[in-house]
Simulated assay, not measured.
Amino acid sequence: MHPGQNVINPVPPQVPVIMPAPYRPPNCPTGLEYLTQIDQLLIHQNVHIAEIVLNLETRNSYTVKNSVGQQVFAVAEENDCCTLMFCGPGRPFTLHLKDNLGQEVVTVTRPLRCSLCCFPCCLQELEVQSPPGCPIGYIIQECHVYLPKFIILNERREPQLRIQGPLMACSWWGDINFEVKSLDESVVVGQISKQWSGFIQEAFTDTDNFGISFPMDLDVKVKASLLGACFLIDFMFFEKQKGSNG
Rank of each mutant, 00 (worst) to 15 (best):
R157S: 09
K221Q: 13
V188C: 15
Q129P: 02
L95W: 02
K194A: 10
G243K: 14
G165A: 10
L147C: 00
W172M: 03
P120E: 00
L126M: 15
Q5S: 11
L95D: 01
G31N: 11
I200H: 01
S225N: 14
M1F: 15
F210M: 05
L183Y: 15
D234G: 02
V11L: 12
P89S: 02
S186T: 05
F93Y: 15
P13M: 12
I200V: 12
N154A: 09
Q129H: 14
E185F: 08
D219F: 14
P120M: 03
P132T: 09
H2N: 14
L112Q: 15
P215N: 03
P29A: 07
K223H: 03
H48I: 01
P135T: 00
I140G: 10
A50K: 03
Q14F: 15
G228E: 01
F235R: 02
V189C: 07
P13C: 09
N79L: 02
Q201K: 09
Q37I: 11
P120R: 00
L41C: 00
L218V: 06
S182K: 12
K181V: 08
V53Q: 10
P3M: 10
V180A: 08
Q103Y: 11
L56V: 13
F237I: 13
Q241S: 13
L101E: 08
P13I: 11
I233M: 14
T205P: 05
N27C: 10
F210A: 06
T58M: 07
